[in-house]
């Protein structure tokens, strides 16, 4: 009896330590975002007075409004608004096209294989792991030749191109598990490549389409390197505009505006994570454990 009691006390202590550690880590992960959020609704004087963890004495939405519509980023004090739309205009077509290409590639590589399909698969695999620095010089050149330097369309092309490797692998890994019998039966019935794709494969692809779209959206929205290399003041995506806002050396550092701006830049991907985190994680794992 006493032995049993002793055992349960140790178990209780262990359990308490376990939850304490879990909560401590949760705090560490949430803290930077919390600090950013509370300070984005404080007047600047309160931030300068210190107490970064405190809730504001005077709540204000002024920093958010300023970050969105009047902060100085480019030549004109436009706020982040035009850059937000730049990012939308860049992300939507790039995600759509790269996902479509990936679906078609993945489908052919699994169910319509031909001599040399393995080489194409390896090419796609390799494309996922290149450091983008290797492509910056020729890409800048190519965009210049086609008159796309400094345009949103140029960024769409770049992101589509470097997304194909990922999207192809995602769809390929999904379709590889697709029952072969069904395919064979359809082929015997005389259904062609497109017919099978639109009638059988595509209707069963919703989960992987969601995973791919979320993965592509997050990656392209968060990209900085391509944006800073190939865009100019008219076509900066959100990340580049935010960096300009935060690291501009002129005038007083308006931290509250910076934080509000950072939050605005984070909202789309954060919302996706909150409402479709399961799919985001699947993409993350699919993008890591390849093959």
């Amino acid at each position: 009896m006493t032995r049993r009691k002793k055992f349960s006390t140790t178990a209780m202590i262990q359990k308490a330590a376990l939850y304490f550690s879990l909560l401590l880590f949760a705090f560490l992960f949430l803290m930077p975002m919390y600090v950013m959020l509370v300070n984005s609704v404080k007047p600047l004087e309160e931030i300068q007075a210190g107490g970064m963890m405190n809730l504001p004495w005077n709540w204000t939405l002024e920093p958010w409004l300023k970050a969105w519509s009047t902060a100085q980023i480019g030549v004109e004090p436009t706020g982040l608004r035009p850059y937000f739309w730049n990012s939308i205009l860049m992300v939507v077509p790039a995600v759509t096209v790269s996902t479509l290409l990936g679906a078609v590639n993945g489908y052919v590589l699994t169910h319509w294989t031909f001599r040399g399909h393995k080489i194409i698969f390896l090419m796609m695999l390799g494309a996922v792991f290149i450091p983008y620095q290797i492509a910056l010089i020729p890409m800048a050149r190519m965009l210049g030749v086609f008159g796309l330097a400094g345009t949103i369309l140029g960024l769409v092309v770049v992101h589509t191109l470097y997304g194909i490797g990922f999207t192809t692998l995602f769809f390929r890994n999904y379709y590889v598990a697709f029952p072969d019998d069904l395919m064979k039966a359809a082929k015997v019935d005389g259904a062609g490549l497109f017919r099978i794709f639109f009638r059988i494969i595509l209707p069963a692809s919703t989960p992987i389409i969601i995973v791919t779209v979320i993965w592509q959206f997050t990656n392209i929205w968060n990209d900085f390197l391509f944006g800073v290399s190939f865009a100019d003041f008219d076509s900066f995506p959100m990340t580049v505009a935010l960096n300009n806002l935060v690291n501009s050396s002129t005038g007083v550092k308006e931290y509250n505006v910076h934080f509000a701006g950072a939050f605005i830049a984070a909202v789309p991907t954060l919302l996706i994570y909150i409402f479709a985190g399961r799919y985001f994680v699947r993409g993350l794992m699919g993008g890591s454990v390849k093959g």
């Binding site: 992960f29 900085f224 950072a262 984070a266 991907t269 954060l270 985001f280």
Partner: peptide, 9 residues
């Protein structure tokens, strides 16, 4: 969740 955010943010 930080994986969903941009490094700039």
């Amino acid at each position: 969740y930080p994986m969903a955010l941009s490094f700039i943010v």
